[in-house]
Amino acid sequence: MAFGPHLILATLEGLVTSAVLALMALGLSLVFGVMRVVNVAHGEFYMLGAVLAWAIASAFGGHPSIGFLAALVISPLIVGGVALVADRLVLKRLDYNPEATIVATIGLLYILQQVALTFYGPEARPVQAPFTYRVSLPWFGYSGYKLAVIGASILLLLATWFVLSRTRIGMIMRATQYDSETAQAFGIPVGRVYTGVFAVGAMLAAVAAVLIVPISQAHYLMGRDPLLLSFIVVIIGGLGSLRGTVVAALLIGVSDGIISVFFSPTLAKIIATFVVAMVLVFRPQGLFGTAAR
């Protein structure tokens, strides 16, 4: 393949990675931005979303799209429910203390991982894509499903932006993010906002997982790399910034795609980590974050 088409293919692959990464990192960013909780278990919500997607899709017969659509709805709801219970049973009791919740979410990571290993097993299992249409480009054919993943991610990101910036619930979330004590002094039930945000953050990770599982496969250890990349995205973009998350996900995803194709995936990870280090040194609040006052 000539260089030009090769570059287009690498960019498309990078965009798919960016799309999924943006959704997952957005969940992580929301949770930290609003609650000041570093959720180390975020990757396991992603894994749980994928594993549940396999279980749900397998339970439905008929056309693969039926099982996939069922998984796309049910899996995030279950994962959101798990996050809600975890918040009430663990994080709330720790009074959302930043240090204690890091340790607690590490514990949650291992619990979810081992539950998945026990009931799902160590195998990697695929979920069939809802359709197998290929888009014919002048140089090569490309998966229509992958393009749909990019489109779905854009829609979800726009929906999140709309909720955060144009609705009352978004205003409540932003007020809690900026100053939780003052928010309480104006009647905002901060505890309930935290629970809701933690559940929504986990659901975004689960949606990302359901979208990716027809491309990669569901596995009980699949949460590790996306968690690392999500942290990289969130640090570069600025914690709590939707715009920053999207820009950083594009930067990391597309560069990962291109560098992986033309050089090696390891070099892509080295460069991403180097960029994070530079951001932490020269702009610790991230590209679009606000400096702490």
């Binding site: 009352r168 205003m171 409540i172 007020a175 928010a183 104006f186 009647g187 905002i188």
Partner: peptide
């Protein structure tokens, strides 16, 4: 928006 937050409480 700040005023709206005030109005929402009651």
């Amino acid at each position: 928006e700040n005023i709206e937050i005030g109005l929402m409480a009651r």
